[in-house]
Every structure is written in structure tokens, then in C-alpha cells.
Simulated assay, not measured.
Amino acid sequence: MGELEELKIILREESSPFFTDEELEFYLTKNEGDMNDTAYECLLLKAEDDSISLPGGLQLANNSQYWLRLAKKYKRNGSRCL
């Protein structure tokens, strides 16, 4: 399995498509191929407010908290040895 396919699985792109292959390649390159940093950045982008209010009172809930919970798994903790 290649990096792009692995990233798509982490980002749950099959069930919740958001990025094109070109965009994912861009973020992988931007993060120097680091899968965790790329996943974290992309999950934060997916966490943007996506709630929708339609005429007639129909509302689709915001699921940003779901993506933020997933992003926490890939966030660097910043701990280092001094």
C-alpha cells in the first residue's frame, strides 16, 4: 500500500471524500512525507464547520468534533529530551 492510499484510509476519504489526490500529494510534500503531520493537518481542514441549514427548517449537524477527535491521534505532543 502506498502513502497516498494509507493517507486516504486515515482520513476516511472513501466514506467522507474531501480531498483530491493532487491535494493529498501537496500536503504530503508540504509535510516532507511525514504521515502523522499530514494526517493532522488534513483532519483539521476536514473539521471546518460544515453544518447546513436548508429552507423549511432542515438542518444537517456539524461533525467537526468527530474530525478533531481523529486529529488528536496524529498531533505531535512536543515533548523532547533536554
Rank of each mutant, 00 (worst) to 15 (best):
M1L: 14
M1C: 13
M1V: 15
M1K: 15
G2T: 13
G2R: 11
G2L: 06
G2Q: 13
E3H: 14
E3K: 15
L4E: 09
E6P: 14
E6S: 14
E6Y: 15
L7A: 05
K8R: 07
I9H: 11
I9E: 14
I9P: 11
I10E: 00
I10T: 05
L11E: 01
L11Y: 00
L11G: 02
R12G: 13
E13L: 08
E13R: 05
E13F: 02
E14P: 10
E14W: 03
E14T: 12
E14R: 12
S15D: 09
S15E: 09
S16T: 08
P17H: 01
P17G: 07
F18M: 08
F18A: 09
F18C: 11
T20L: 03
T20S: 07
D21A: 11
D21T: 08
D21G: 12
E22M: 08
E22V: 07
E22T: 10
E22A: 11
E22H: 11
E23K: 09
L24I: 05
E25K: 13
E25M: 09
F26N: 10
F26L: 08
Y27Q: 04
L28F: 03
T29V: 13
T29M: 11
K30F: 01
K30T: 06
K30A: 10
N31V: 04
E32M: 08
G33R: 02
G33F: 02
G33V: 02
G33E: 01
D34M: 03
M35D: 06
M35Y: 01
N36I: 05
D37Y: 09
A39D: 02
A39V: 02
E41P: 12
C42I: 00
L43E: 04
L43S: 04
L43F: 03
L44Y: 06
L45M: 05
L45W: 04
K46T: 02
A47N: 08
E48H: 10
D49I: 06
D49A: 13
D50W: 05
S51K: 08
I52T: 13
I52R: 09
I52K: 12
L54M: 09
L54W: 01
P55F: 07
P55G: 12
P55N: 10
P55T: 08
P55S: 11
G56F: 02
G56E: 00
G57Q: 02
G57Y: 01
G57H: 01
L58G: 12
Q59F: 07
L60K: 08
L60V: 06
L60E: 07
A61F: 05
A61E: 06
A61W: 04
A61N: 10
A61P: 06
A61D: 09
A61K: 10
N62W: 04
N62Y: 00
S64G: 12
S64M: 03
Q65H: 13
Y66A: 14
Y66F: 08
W67L: 06
W67F: 06
W67S: 09
W67V: 02
L68Y: 01
L68S: 11
L70K: 09
K72T: 05
K72S: 11
K72R: 05
K72A: 12
K73M: 15
K73Y: 13
K73V: 15
Y74K: 06
Y74N: 08
K75F: 00
R76T: 13
R76S: 15
R76Y: 09
R76W: 08
R76N: 15
G78Y: 01
G78K: 03
G78Q: 01
G78F: 00
S79H: 14
R80A: 12
C81Q: 14
L82S: 15
L82G: 15
